[in-house]
Amino acid sequence: MSNEINITINGRELKAREQQTILGVARSNDIYIPTLCFLKGLSGVGACRLCLVEIEGVPRLLPACVTKVTEGMVVTTESPKLKEYRRMILELLLAERNHVCAFCVVSGNCELQDLAQQLGVTYVRYPYRFPKYKVDATHDRFLYDPNRCVLCTRCMRACEEVEGARTWNVRGRGIRSFMITDLNQDWGDSPTCTTCGKCVEACPTGALAVKGRATGEMKRKKNVLSQLSSMRDRGR
């Protein structure tokens, strides 16, 4: 049994349950907090830092996606500082790899695109890196275009936590971090991939896509992963 908790978000007094995250409470009360690495049904990692919020009495900014609510918590989700930081983070992300919507299968269905619109990012103040990573088209059904990857690790978590295949992981560290399959081999040669497509469903951008789709054609099913994982949880 979980107890009811009183918290305040942006001046609104709200009821919440113990073990709920700030993000969960905010979403169920229609308060928008931007997220990227968060995906319902997967474990939270607090990595993209877009969902950072201010909490009274806490000197640091905390990620709403993994921070649990506590009694009397006073949360601010919008402030000039948060707004500026979110914009900078998004701009840095956009400069890191090639996010050219014009030729992207998910254009119009891309979380990164949505975020840029939501946060009003119309220009990027940092120089673009324009990396030229090879696209991995070795898989029968799917494509992996690292140039569009944001390193959110949603594919990796979907693969491990929902499918249990553990095909994806991160190679290297820092700015050289890179999503790989198995021993850094072609996806098509993967001995572990079950071709379930969950990673493709989980991907927020066009980095992972179903083969044979034209620009803007690919649409993802909303909430498919959370449904899968909640079914799994119930099954336990």
Partner: peptide, 9 residues
């Protein structure tokens, strides 16, 4: 480590 964007990029 490259996990979060502010530090990585």
């Amino acid at each position: 480590c490259g996990k979060c964007i502010p530090c990585r990029v």
